[in-house]
Simulated assay, not measured.
Amino acid sequence: MNVELAVATAEPSGAGATPPYTCLPLNSVSRRGRAAVNGWQTTAVRLTGLSGTVHAIGVRLTVTTGPVRWRLGGLAVHDGSTPPAAPGNVRITAATGGDLRFAWDAAVGDVRHYELHRVLPDGTRRFLGGTAQRAYFVPGLQPEQGERTARFEVRAVGELYLASAPMTVTHTW
């Protein structure tokens, strides 16, 4: 099966006429974002070579044999892709043993959610959670690999799932 994104940058020639589409093949477009999960895949297409206003968007499927199993989960058109700014003033507002409450100031820009990671002594990161709020509670943390101070990162994630630079905070055990 061939999948193409059809983009019209002009109005149809008349009432009931098909818009003048330019078809961009998606089969050969490099994939961006997460790998296929449960059959779902994310594809980003840059509309290079086109100019003007997008008047219509379509998807064209070409099948040579067999039944079609394809579904459009979502479609978004954006004028550029810039990650949001990092959240500000990241801090631990309460700590009891390994129970920590994190808080931060909102990031500037379009923010989908915030992600909290723990940076382990070997440099790897462990995902602790995500939230659309500006605070997060993590229970039951303990020192890892003999660490005396734990480091945490908070990032803002934008509408296109681009993450901001991390803002860090530390906690001494």
Rank of each mutant, 00 (worst) to 15 (best):
V3Y: 10
E4W: 01
T9A: 11
E11H: 13
P12L: 14
S13C: 03
T18E: 10
T18R: 12
T18W: 02
P19C: 06
P20F: 03
T22Y: 02
C23P: 02
N27T: 05
V29I: 12
R34H: 10
R34C: 04
V37A: 14
W40H: 03
Q41K: 07
T42F: 00
V45M: 03
R46T: 11
G49K: 09
L50G: 06
H55I: 01
I57R: 03
L61T: 13
T62G: 07
T62W: 05
T62E: 07
T62H: 06
P67D: 15
G73C: 09
D79C: 07
G80I: 01
P83V: 13
A85T: 12
A85D: 15
P87R: 03
T93W: 10
A94C: 02
G98I: 03
L100V: 14
L100E: 02
F102Q: 01
A103D: 03
W104S: 00
D105G: 15
A106H: 00
D110S: 11
V111P: 01
V111M: 09
L116K: 00
P121I: 04
T124R: 14
R126H: 13
L128V: 11
G129C: 08
G130R: 12
T131Y: 12
T131Q: 07
A135E: 15
Y136K: 01
V138N: 02
Q142R: 14
E147M: 02
T149R: 15
A150N: 05
R155K: 13
A156C: 08
T170D: 11
